[in-house]
């Protein structure tokens, strides 16, 4: 067998090490500022979720579920959340919920504009697309470590890692949704003298909304899928429970935390799935 010649070597590994080291030192202030802001958001969300009495939150979720779908979803959501409480995982669940919501919020704020930009110019799309592919296929542990180095141990790198994992979906779905808007409808808007901005807000975004909502739903699911991994670097919440359960061979503990994640996932999935406006759904 022929060995690959080792006298010629591409030192990419060393370059990346050096780059990350440089960023850690030189970009310290910058990443601290970002990290500080994100931490504030996260703590505020967590605080709010834990401040609200459990029965009020359950009632609120049930109300939303009833509004977007029907009483059955409302009842199911309420039962699920009570069940989590009975398992003694209410606080952990709220921590997880906070990080998922924060990551989703970030993904929308960052992802939707990028998705829109991709529809404007084809070169932007061909630039962004491979980056998205990389974000989705790169094993998450690979960027967990640099995130750790840049932001330090704790909730912020966990949030960043979750965000990186989840944001490609909101970008992709926004891009897809806007590109799916029939060309003749946009042409009509143009023929009536609508500006680019008017076309975007009066025609393209409303028509793309069901697809964008599907993207947000997927973003949430992705974020939930990351909670266990993220807990390795200090995300806390249900992920830590699972992790602790595994490391101490406490099968039951890991199992109930796992079930709680599933319950949260189902409730959030069903609610966001039905959030797209009824009229826009008929358009799909």
């Amino acid at each position: 067998m022929q060995e690959f010649p080792d006298f010629f070597e591409l030192p990419l590994e060393k370059w990346i090490d050096r780059g990350v080291n440089w960023l850690t030192v030189e970009g310290d202030a910058f990443f601290d500022a970002i990290g500080g802001g994100l931490l504030q958001l996260l703590l505020w969300l967590e605080g709010a979720l834990l401040w609200i009495p459990w029965y009020v939150l359950i009632a609120a979720v049930a109300l939303v579920a009833w509004r977007v779908k029907d009483w059955r979803l409302a009842a199911g959501s309420a039962v699920g959340m009570v069940f989590i409480g009975l398992l003694g995982l209410w606080e952990a669940s709220m921590q997880t919920l906070a990080i998922v919501l924060a990551a989703t919020l970030l993904a929308i704020v960052v992802g939707v504009p990028i998705g829109i930009a991709m529809t404007r110019k084809d070169w932007i799309e061909s630039l962004i697309r491979p980056i998205l592919d990389m974000m989705q296929t790169l094993p998450s542990f690979v960027y967990l470590i640099p995130a750790l180095m840049l932001f330090g141990l704790g909730k912020v790198p966990a949030l960043i890692a979750t965000f990186i994992y989840a944001v490609p979906l909101s970008i992709r779905f926004t891009n897809l949704g806007i590109r799916q808007v029939p060309a003749d409808v946009i042409e009509a808007a143009e023929a009536f003298g609508a500006t680019q901005q008017q076309q975007l807000f009066k025609v393209q975004l409303p028509l793309a909304l069901p697809t964008i909502m599907a993207g947000i739903n997927q973003t949430i699911m992705m974020a939930l899928a990351m909670v266990v991994v993220a807990s390795m670097i200090g995300a806390g919440g249900l992920g830590s429970e699972v992790l602790n359960g595994i490391s101490r061979l406490e099968v039951g503990r890991g199992f109930v935390a796992g079930i709680s994640i599933v319950i949260l996932a189902i409730i959030m999935d069903r609610i966001t799935q039905n959030m797209a406006p009824a009229r826009a759904k008929a358009v799909e």
């Binding site: 029939p182 003749d184 409808v185 042409e187 009509a188 808007a189 143009e190 023929a191 009536f192 003298g193 609508a194 500006t195 008017q198 009066k202 025609v203 409303p206 028509l207 009229r279 826009a280 008929a282 358009v283």
Partner: peptide
Amino acid sequence: RLHRMSMVFQRFSLFPHRSVLDNIAFGLEV
């Protein structure tokens, strides 16, 4: 396009997410 020329299309090209009234008012809205 806003004031002097408007257009009627073969496949109607109405805005599916807008009511009939809002479709008709679109030109004035923009």
